[in-house]
Design a protein around this nucleic acid. Structure first.
Lengths: 128, 128
DNA sequence: GTGCGTGCAAACCGTTTGCAATCGG
DNA sequence: CCGATTGCAAACGGTTTGCACGCAC
């Protein structure tokens, strides 16, 4: 039900993006797209990802020590960032979100709405 | 026991930074410093904060929808970001860190080391 | 005196934008 | 057709850096 056009660029970008399982930044998606389709511009990749994130079709993550990362999975889950290389992966864990929200006492008149747990760790490669 | 020099700029920057309780970005610290001490350069403020963060004396946070924020408090605690204006505040909550780390199953060979809970919410001003 | 720390301005890097050309519906 | 979408290149904003000078030690 989108009033948006279904362009070739959009198909290609999301085709390639959805096959990347490393929570890539927009730049990383552009690299991957550019390899096979050098005529698709950087701006288009950035625009398409930002648009999809705004529409809630994908997630835009801000994590420690890295640029914005995009995530195909929009349902509530958590992440780990490698402290060495910045690689990102999903973390399977069951966390009672509402218990967290209720148990928390924010300062200065804030109201809490959502929570996200970010783990820091090491990836396989960087552990040596 | 630092082999670093104790310069006037360093004293001033951290004097002012430690009085800001809004988890400021480097730019915000510079603004505050610049108001009273216009002869201290932006680069110096950025360098001093980055250096202190590298030494573990302060925290460098990357949170949703904002630049890097610095935090005087280095002990383990959690944060909330206003979804409207990006303001940051501490959140008091007791979370069993090791239980989190043990209960979590990271993908792709990651080892977890630390956790940080980031809440999204609204601040007093933006709630209207 | 020595060399670390600073100020300045320019470079940087990821991202965004203005605009004319193009393409999808 | 006609306006949404694209490609390009230039602008942007926050941060970093190279270099010469000055200050802490």
């Amino acid at each position: 039900m989108s009033n948006k056009r279904n362009t070739i660029q959009k198909q290609i970008v999301f085709e390639i993006f959805s096959k990347m399982n490393n929570h890539p930044s927009a730049g990383m998606v552009f690299e991957a797209v550019n390899e096979k389709y050098p005529n698709i511009s950087r701006a288009t990749v950035f625009r398409l990802l930002a648009e999809a994130a705004d529409e809630g079709k994908i997630l835009r993550l801000k994590l420690n020590n890295s640029n914005d990362r995009y995530d195909v999975t929009t349902c509530h889950h958590h992440h780990v960032v490698c402290r060495e290389c910045g690689a990102v992966a999903d973390v399977d864990i069951i966390i009672d979100d509402s218990a967290l929200l209720e148990g928390a006492a924010p300062h200065e008149g804030f109201t809490l709405e959502k929570s996200h747990v970010e783990f820091v760790g090491v990836c396989d490669k960087c552990r040596n």
